[in-house]
């Protein structure tokens, strides 16, 4: 049988329109120009008004401090990154595993889900002191805090994803006598992938925030550790330029994590999921 003309593929993958390159350029140029303008205005404001650096340092001073204090800030950044990523990985593994367990049986879900919710809704700053008491190493305690925060969005997204499988596809798998394991591996997990990716994006940002908050809570107990501690320390010493430098590093880390998780999400969904496709009308 020959496929007729009106039965041709609905979507066309090539997109070499002349407007595409210009669009890409604009997408980089516009925000970059805006950022440069903001920094320039900030610099001008500080210089023209003679604002003292302990109130508001100029961007140039912040950049200089970043270079000058790199020996202090870099190890701190590494510590924060290590906590953030180990917490995120733990949350991804733990959240997904618990989600798979929860959807296997209604009993398990009824028994365990409330605890997940309680852990989530209790403010992390409130539990942090307790965890700091119980866990011998401060680093470990901070990591547990970050884990607890990142864990829930991944869990709830995964549970939602595993439950939103097309019922007819489930029927189809039943019809062909698929085992539970086949159904999980070949149907439920791939179907939940977009939800997992949404959880990853939220969890990635949250684990950084939680790592910082937990370190604040740890206060002097976390002496000589992550970026948040350096931030607090700079504040005590009125070293505002260094505080800003630490802040810049934290923001940059957050942006990098967001970009990274978005990239992972796009790479894994680009072939099939609506969220990763550009709309063509």
């Amino acid at each position: 049988m020959v496929a007729l003309a009106d039965d041709a593929p609905a979507a066309n993958r090539s997109e070499s329109a002349p407007g595409a390159n210009r669009d890409r350029l604009m997408r980089i140029a516009v925000p970059a120009a805006m950022l440069a303008l903001t920094l320039l205005a900030w610099e001008a404001y500080v210089r023209l008004n003679g604002v003292p650096p302990y109130i508001l340092p100029a961007p140039s001073l912040v950049a200089a401090t970043l270079v000058k204090d790199w020996a202090t800030l870099w190890p701190a950044l590494l510590v924060t990154l290590q906590i953030t990523f180990s917490a995120l990985i733990l949350a991804l593994v733990g959240g997904s595993a618990l989600a798979i367990l929860l959807v296997q049986s209604r009993w398990v879900e009824l028994a365990l889900y409330p605890y997940a919710v309680i852990l989530q809704v209790t403010p992390i700053v409130a539990i942090a002191p307790l965890i700091l008491v119980y866990v011998p190493s401060t680093q470990g305690a901070i990591m547990i805090c970050a884990f607890l925060v990142a864990f829930f969005p991944i869990l709830s997204n995964m549970v939602q994803g595993l439950k939103s499988v097309d019922h007819n596809l489930l029927n189809l798998y039943d019809l062909y006598g698929a085992s539970r394991w086949q159904q999980l591996r070949m149907l439920k997990l791939p179907a939940a992938l977009p939800y997992f990716m949404a959880g990853l994006k939220i969890g990635g940002g949250l684990s950084l925030i939680a790592a910082v908050v937990a370190e604040f809570a740890a206060g002097s107990a976390g002496a000589g550790s992550g970026l948040a501690f350096r931030l607090l320390e700079s504040q005590y010493r009125m070293n505002i330029p260094r505080l800003f430098a630490a802040l810049v590093l934290l923001s940059a880390t957050g942006v990098a994590i967001f970009a990274f998780t978005s990239l992972v999400s796009w790479l894994s969904l680009r072939r099939w999921h609506e969220s990763a496709l550009s709309r063509e009308n």
Binding site: N168, L172, L175, Y176, G177, A178, M186, W272
Partner: peptide
């Protein structure tokens, strides 16, 4: 063999893998 009201394909699999599914499950 069952054909549903909707195509009921796995969007993450290419056409070949979708048609291959019943055999793969066996």
């Amino acid at each position: 063999g069952f054909v549903f009201q909707e195509p009921t394909l796995m969007p993450w699999k290419p056409v070949f893998d979708n048609a291959f599914l019943p055999l793969r499950l066996k």
